[in-house]
């Protein structure tokens, strides 16, 4: 088991308020690590620290370190880092352009592809990997904004796959989706695990139990418990964890 990401003694603050306290956690290569916990427990802040989206917030500050393949992410070039760690937001955010353009947008800007034939191949491959190809292959030139929410979310996944990252962060990717779309997104996640390392924040405890290898329970900025998903759901060690996964939590 190789640690893809290693977090050492990480604390995060918004202004003076501490939202993550002395976190130590690692993400193993090619696993799906779920993070569950009530809202405001710092899950999003954790993800946004990993790819340094938080650094754009002027009142945000942090202590501690995060390593990606044993190099500190805080020493890396931000754009380079985000190319390696992709992130999917809760609400699908397609750009107001065609499906095709959405996918080639970032690779073009990053100078990864040039030829038209390369672009076509990339679009097809990314959409296939995101389980969207069959639904949209006949209307690649139509606007992405016209698709359903679930399709848009999978387009956003395809868009991330197109820059070929190593890690993908999902922040409650199904919170706005119906059960069928959710199933399709989960299906693609399980498939993606072969090639990528995945961190999945979810407000849906069942989703964590369905797709992830390990699960961490966050509460008020602390990791209460982290274990393999089977163990954590069958025999949680902490009372708070048990309360939360059985739905007895406030």
């Amino acid at each position: 088991m190789v640690d893809k990401i290693k977090v050492e003694d990480l604390s995060c603050y918004y202004g003076k308020k501490c939202v993550l306290e002395s976190l130590n956690i690692s993400v193993v290569q090619n696993e799906i690590l779920s993070i569950i916990g009530p809202s405001n427990s710092g899950k999003t802040t954790f993800l946004r620290t990993l790819n340094r989206m938080s650094d754009l917030d002027s009142i945000y500050s942090r202590r501690g370190d995060v390593y990606l393949d044993s190099a500190s992410v805080f020493d890396m070039d931000m754009e380079e880092l985000r190319k390696r760690i992709g992130m999917l937001f809760a609400m699908p955010i397609s750009f107001p352009m065609s499906i095709y353009e959405n996918i080639v947008y970032a690779p073009k800007r990053l100078g990864l592809i040039f030829k038209k034939s390369e672009q076509d191949a990339l679009v097809e491959q990314s959409l296939k990997d995101a389980f969207l190809w069959n639904e949209v292959k006949d209307r690649l030139k139509s606007s992405a904004m016209k698709m359903s929410g679930g399709q848009q979310q999978r387009l956003c996944i395809a868009r991330i796959l197109a820059i070929n990252p190593e890690v993908i962060l999902f922040d409650e990717p199904c919170s706005g989706l119906d059960p069928i779309s959710t199933a399709r997104v989960e299906e693609s996640m399980v498939e993606l695990k072969r090639k990528y390392t995945i961190v999945l924040v979810t407000n849906n405890v069942k989703q964590a139990s369905r797709v992830s290898d390990r699960t961490a329970f966050f509460l008020m900025g602390k990791i209460i418990e982290i274990d393999t998903t089977d163990k954590l759901f069958v025999s949680p060690k902490k009372k708070q964890t048990e309360d939360y996964i059985t739905g007895r939590f406030g």
């Binding site: 790819n51 989206m53 754009l56 880092l81 985000r82 937001f89 970032a106 990053l110 956003c156 820059i163």
Partner: peptide, 11 residues
């Protein structure tokens, strides 16, 4: 959110 989505892709 458009800006964030673009930054998150390394652009």
């Amino acid at each position: 959110s458009f800006r964030e989505a673009s930054w998150a892709l390394g652009v």
